[in-house]
Write a protein that binds this DNA or RNA. Structure first.
Lengths: 197, 197
DNA sequence: TATTGTTATACTCTATAACTATA
DNA sequence: TATAGTTATAGAGTATAACAATA
């Protein structure tokens, strides 16, 4: 039995005190589901969770996390960019270079990915999948595409394209804010230089 | 100096071997930005990061995380639902009840939120903001709405509505998959019942 | 027995920072 | 001095699990 229901038509448009219209506050997700804020941040959170669940289910049989599989999708030679370096990979994935380093190490240990020192810049390591990695990617690529498509099942074909275009525009124009891990609380005490040792 | 560029027009549409068209593989986010996969999961990740950054910047002066502020937005009496219980809150936020419990405790400690035992079901605690909490929410509500709107700046007004509608549809239809924390690797060793001691 | 909420513990993700090697 | 990458440490977020109180 749900608690008391006391909400004034949650999906109705809200008027501010000056009479100007703003985004409706909440939307119902279903007859037995709770209302959710009809705002980018709320919907983005759920959208992201849905995508993670879908992709995780899809690539788990390969023994990979969604991010690990994403690495392979950027490096495979069917439709990726083999030969990019780790910073380039990090930028594509939306992770920082420490994280990219860890991902590369994980896939390397599994024998799916290999590095070679760049001839142009001996600091840089150019990345590519091993034959084993290419085979694994090839085996799961179709399922991954299909999982991504299934997320958009509720949309028409035209809407799917429109959604991806709009998200692309949002991501492009707000690229400066696409820092992973933002939104978490700042560490209590950053060790100051004099603290060291 | 960027590494070698070797990608075959990343935003071109991909054809599968049977000739059927599928989603283009990547899109360019800008002249100096790397290409990103044009797929729900990739874009969702960045979209989510952008939202988190925007909202975090907006509510940080209140000493709150985005999720803590979201709690207040669901409980305030201006446009929220004061009196819901913790499970109801968890369902709205998209977190599990352990997490909701922690969030409630955090806000309670700050004096922003109060609980009372439900008369109908003495197990349930009904939630509402304290006067201090209502004031704090009122002070930051406009900025929060504006931050959410700013995320959608790259879209026209009609497109904003369309995007929110499409995301709502996706979230509604995939509600079963909106589990937070999915996509992470499974814990190494779940303590088996026989391990207990 | 099932459900609401609490608490403890553990693990993943990611940030911070120091380091090495090369530019 | 600046950049590519590595590694260590720590902290935030969240899952898992056990528990108490109530249904």
């Amino acid at each position: 039995m749900p608690p008391r229901e006391n909400r004034p038509s949650p999906s109705a448009a809200q008027l501010r005190s000056d009479g100007s219209a703003t985004i409706p506050v909440t939307v119902m997700l279903g007859p037995n589901a709770p209302p959710v804020r009809r705002a980018p941040a709320s919907l983005a959170r759920r959208f992201y969770h849905i995508c993670m669940t879908m992709i995780a289910d899809c690539v788990a049989p390969a023994g990979l996390t969604p991010l690990q599989f994403a690495v392979m999708s950027y490096l495979n030679k069917q439709n990726g960019e083999p030969g990019i370096d780790q910073n380039g990979l990090a930028a594509r994935l939306g992770v920082d270079r420490n994280n990219a380093s860890l991902l590369v190490e994980q896939l390397g240990k599994m024998g799916l990915l290999s590095r070679r020192v760049s001839e142009d810049d001996r600091r840089a390591r150019l990345l590519q999948l091993t034959p084993k990695g290419e085979r694994l990617y090839a085996r799961f690529e179709a399922a991954n595409v299909e999982a991504n498509n299934r997320i958009l099942d509720p949309l028409t074909s035209a809407e799917r394209n429109l959604l991806l275009d709009m998200l692309t525009r949002i991501v492009t124009r707000n690229a400066a804010f696409a820092r992973p891990g933002a939104g978490r609380r700042k560490p209590k005490r950053a060790r100051s230089p004099s603290d060291q040792e």
